[in-house]
Simulated scan of single mutants.
Amino acid sequence: MTSTETAADGPAPQRPLPSLADPDTAAFWRATGEHRLTYQEGEDGRVVFFPRRHGGGRVRDSAGLGEVYTYTVVRRHGHPFFRAHAPYVVALVDMDEGFRLMAEVDADPADVHIGQRVRVGWEDHEVGSERLAIPVFTPAG
């Protein structure tokens, strides 16, 4: 069921979304609205994730490819959206550019494994008059 469909007992629960008002993360989330996964590279070449407004350095776009470092299968959750979505996989993904992030892997839990190559995909959302997208990975095979 998509977030716009209606269940028999009312509207489908909505995914909680990040705030576009946070000064440190707003630029990152706005970039996701353009399907860009960004990270920061300091003047010394050090990779910083997530990009911060006070961190200095250049904001760069990731190619969106990485490897599952570790993962878990969420089978029960208290929030209505995630409860209806279970079971689902949450992984720490080592991106090829050198940063690690936590994200969902949209695949059958039995098909996910450590070391698996994954590619970023996007779950689009409207927040007021702005767009953002949640990065959701899929197997890159």
Rank of each mutant, 00 (worst) to 15 (best):
T72Y: 03
V112N: 04
L17V: 05
R15C: 09
G64M: 08
R30K: 10
S129M: 04
G57C: 05
A21W: 03
L132R: 07
E41K: 10
Y69C: 03
M102T: 15
G66P: 06
H77C: 07
G55M: 03
Q14R: 14
D111V: 02
V90A: 06
Y88I: 13
P51N: 13
P135C: 09
P135A: 08
P16Q: 14
P109D: 11
Q116C: 07
P18Y: 02
G10D: 14
R30L: 14
V105C: 07
V68D: 09
E123V: 05
V118G: 05
S129N: 11
G141R: 01
L65D: 05
T25W: 10
R100M: 04
G56D: 06
L17G: 10
P87C: 02
P16F: 13
V47F: 02
G141I: 00
R58E: 12
P18C: 02
R117D: 02
G78E: 01
H113Y: 13
D108Y: 07
S19W: 06
R76Y: 11
T72K: 03
G10T: 01
I114E: 08
R119T: 08
W29S: 13
V93Y: 10
E123N: 05
D61W: 00
S19L: 12
F82H: 08
L92D: 15
D124P: 13
D61K: 00
T38A: 10
H54I: 01
P135Q: 01
P139N: 08
T38L: 11
E5V: 05
A27I: 03
H35S: 13
A133Q: 08
V47N: 09
G98P: 09
A8D: 08
T4M: 10
R83S: 12
E97W: 03
V48Q: 10
R58Q: 15
G78C: 08
D106K: 10
V74N: 00
F137W: 03
R83E: 15
P13V: 01
A8G: 04
V47S: 06
G33W: 00
P18Q: 02
V105N: 06
R75V: 12
F81V: 14
Q40E: 12
L37A: 02
V68E: 11
V120P: 10
W29I: 12
R52G: 11
G98S: 12
A12G: 00
D24M: 08
V118T: 05
